[in-house]
Structures are given as structure tokens and as C-alpha cells.
């Protein structure tokens, strides 16, 4: 039986880090700056759906995700993770942590042991580990499990992380930028595996990625973080309805666009594509057809970029969301 999917709830969560000098695995010292990674995050993560966690570098995505897996705990506020009515603090809580799999970039592996050793470790700790799936995925990604992580390329290490994320079958599976160094065919193979396994074994999946265009259609829900705050948390459908695009001759597009706020503009000779805020009304659709202008959906990427722009030309912050 597939275990109940896990959801999560965060209330007024603040995470502050102190400045620290730390040694990396290869022995070099790195300075971590002091700062506020999350600044008052209140968020519901629905169980059983694939949620996209988007944000620019330093927006607080990774910090948020590490809280759910008890890699870290908040400076202020509460984090609750669980199934059904049972939501608990993940910190030092084996019931939660054994049901939550966070994969960061390339996965957390034993650097000096073969990949197969790391997998044996996960297999022993993860209650729903599927060893056959792990083997098949490594085969698909062409990773030799007898190699040590240090002998693998960045892309292959990410494939190992991807394999852990899926094979753990955790009721809350978190994939934090698990694609670095993967080439496009491998990434698409990974997306296909996520969808196939998710359909077969329903669970909650949080997926953070910078490749918004590639993954936007995988999402049922979307969360956008910006500077440690939640900018937007809604269904992908609601987000999609925030805008649309027009492609066609400049003059026709201009007249159809009217006074709508423009999110993005791309010009190719006499043809222009603009992304606009709001929904097209019936007249727009008919008029567009008549004028030879193609009406298209809103690329999430354009909305995302617009929302998270540091400063707008008109002086307003990009973080302002009109509801």
C-alpha cells in the first residue's frame, strides 16, 4: 500500500544565519555571510501534489526545503510536517524524517565510498526504498554504481541524486535543483521518470529549479519566493491565468494590447511577441483572430522574471503582486 502523502505548514518562519567560516569537503575554507534567509514565511504545502518552488538565487528556497527535512530548524516560527491531521515538528522526529527525502543538487552521498554503498545505506534507512527502481534508474542515467562519487561527472552525480529522490518513494519528496550538469536529454528523461513514478505512487513532490520553462507543466501548485518571503503561492492554473501572450504584426499587437501591463516583449523583424498581465476577454480573442495575431498562454518564466525583478523601470518593486 502506498503510504499517505505528507504535507507541510509553515507559520511566521524566520531563519537567520550567523557569519561563519567553514571547510568544504575538499578542504578549502568558505565564508558564509550572515543574513536572513527566510523572513516571515507562512505557507501551506498541499499533500499529494507536485509543487514548484521557484525563486532567484538567495531567495531562500534551499533554506525552506532544508527545514522540512530537519537539516536545519527555524530561528523563529513553527514548521509542521505530516500526514492527515497529524502534523509535527520535523526536528529530531524519526516519523517525519523517515518520510521526507530531501535531495540537494547531487544528493548527499558518502564521498569516499562507492555509490552502491551509499545506496545500501539509504536502503536500510528508507522504509519505502525500491532497490529495483534504483538499479533501473542508474542504468537509464548510465551511472556505474561501483564508482565513487568523486569519480563521477557533475551530471552523473546529479543523476545519482535523482535516483535517490525517486527510489526513496518518500511521502514527501523534495528535489532541490537536482539537474546541475545534466544534459537536456537526461533532464527530460528525469522529468518523465518523475511523472511516471508519481502517477504510479502518488506522493507529495516539491521541485525547485531555475529551468522554469522546462518544468512548469509538471506543477500543480507553484510557490514563488523572493528575498526570504513568499511572493505567491497558488495553483499553476491560477498562475497561468495571470497573463497571456500575443504574437503578430507590431501594429495589430499594439492595438490589441491596449493598456495592459506588459511583462515581456520580444521583437523579431516585423513580428512582436508581448506577454501581458490579465486574462484575454472574448473580444480580444476574436479580434486577434481577425488581425492575424496569435493568442498564446503565459510563459511562467516571463511572470517569474517580472515578479522577481530587483527594481522596475517605473520605480515600483517587482515584488508587488496584483491580485
Amino acid at each position: 500500500m502506498t503510504p499517505a502523502p505528507f504535507g507541510a505548514r509553515l507559520d511566521d518562519v524566520v531563519v537567520r544565519f550567523g557569519a561563519q567560516r567553514r571547510l568544504t569537503a575538499d578542504g578549502t575554507a568558505v565564508k558564509d555571510e550572515a543574513g536572513t534567509a527566510l523572513d516571515g514565511v507562512t505557507l501551506d504545502l498541499r499533500p499529494g501534489v507536485i509543487t514548484g518552488v521557484l525563486g532567484r538565487n538567495g531567495a531562500g528556497k534551499s533554506t525552506l526545503l532544508t527545514l522540512l527535512a530537519a537539516f536545519n530548524r527555524p530561528t523563529e516560527g513553527t514548521v509542521r510536517v505530516g500526514a492527515g491531521d497529524l502534523l509535527e515538528d520535523p526536528w529530531e522526529n524519526p516519523w517525519v524524517t523517515a518520510n521526507v527525502q530531501l535531495v540537494r543538487e547531487s544528493g548527499d552521498l558518502m564521498d569516499d565510498e562507492r555509490v552502491s554503498e551509499t545506496f545500501k545505506y539509504y536502503a536500510d534507512l528508507r522504509p519505502y526504498w525500491d532497490a529495483d527502481l534504483a538499479e533501473r534508474l542508474l542504468d537509464t542515467f548510465e551511472v556505474n554504481p561501483r564508482k565513487k562519487p568523486t569519480a563521477l561527472s557533475r551530471g552523473k552525480r546529479s543523476a545519482v541524486g535523482a535516483t535517490i529522490g525517486l527510489a526513496a518513494r518518500a511521502p514527501l519528496t523534495i528535489l532541490d535543483e537536482v539537474y546541475l550538469g545534466m544534459d537536456a536529454p537526461t533532464r527530460y528523461a528525469f522529468y518523465d521518470e518523475i511523472l511516471a513514478d508519481y502517477a504510479e505512487h502518488p506522493r507529495t513532490i516539491l521541485l525547485s529549479s531555475h529551468l522554469v520553462e522546462e518544468v512548469e507543466r509538471l506543477f500543480e501548485d507553484v510557490v514563488v519566493l523572493h528575498r526570504g518571503k513568499v511572493l505567491l503561492a497558488e495553483t499553476a492554473e491560477e498562475m497561468q491565468a495571470r497573463g497571456f501572450s500575443l504574437t503578430g504584426p507590431v501594429a495589430a499587437v499594439e492595438s490589441l494590447a491596449g493598456g495592459r501591463r506588459e511583462l515581456h516583449r520580444q521583437r523579431l523583424g516585423a513580428t512582436v511577441q508581448v506577454t501581458l498581465e490579465g486574462a484575454p476577454d472574448g473580444d480580444t480573442a476574436a479580434a486577434a483572430r481577425a488581425a492575424g495575431v496569435e493568442l498564446g498562454s503565459l510563459p511562467l518564466q516571463d511572470l517569474f522574471v517580472r515578479l522577481t525583478q530587483p527594481q522596475q523601470a517605473d520605480g515600483t518593486s517587482g515584488a508587488e503582486v496584483r491580485r
Binding site: F71, N99, G107, D108, Y122, L125, R126, A168
Partner: peptide
């Protein structure tokens, strides 16, 4: 890896 595999 222990913490990542869900150990406390």
C-alpha cells in the same frame, strides 16, 4: 548521508 536518508 545519515541525516539525508532520514536518520536523526
Amino acid at each position: 548521508p545519515h541525516l539525508a536518508a532520514g536518520g536523526t
